[in-house]
């Protein structure tokens, strides 16, 4: 999963896509995931980090992560 270059999330959760001109709001866990993708962390590691940090079962976290990825694709934030 490669986030398009120049896409950055600010601390306030504001995300701007310079290619399309769209802006988004992202919640804190979403911000962490996007940063991890930008650092080229593998998905398995991202999932592990979520499980370590939050009270959540693996199935839910995995399902939600996949859904989030689909939304990133949908909003053309992926290369």
């Amino acid at each position: 999963m490669k986030i398009r270059k120049n896409v950055a999330v600010s601390d306030s959760g504001f995300l701007f896509n310079p290619l399309t001109g769209d802006s988004f709001s992202v919640n804190p866990i979403g911000q962490t995931i996007i940063s991890s993708f930008k650092e080229n962390k593998p998905e398995s590691e991202i999932l592990e980090n979520i499980l370590e940090e939050y009270r959540v079962d693996k199935n839910t976290a995995e399902k939600d992560l996949n859904d989030f990825k689909r939304m990133l694709e949908n909003y053309k934030l992926i290369d």
Binding site: F14, L15, D22, S23, F24, S25, V26, N27, I29, G30, I33, I50, E52, E53, Y54, R55, V56, T60, A61, D64, L65, D67, F68, M71, L72, Y75
Partner: peptide, 19 residues
């Protein structure tokens, strides 16, 4: 551990209900 909330990304420019 923190309370879990699923990751969300939401377009801003749609001019819809603000938070």
């Amino acid at each position: 551990k923190k309370t879990y909330e699923r990751p969300i990304i939401k377009p801003l420019n749609s001019g819809l209900m603000n938070k």
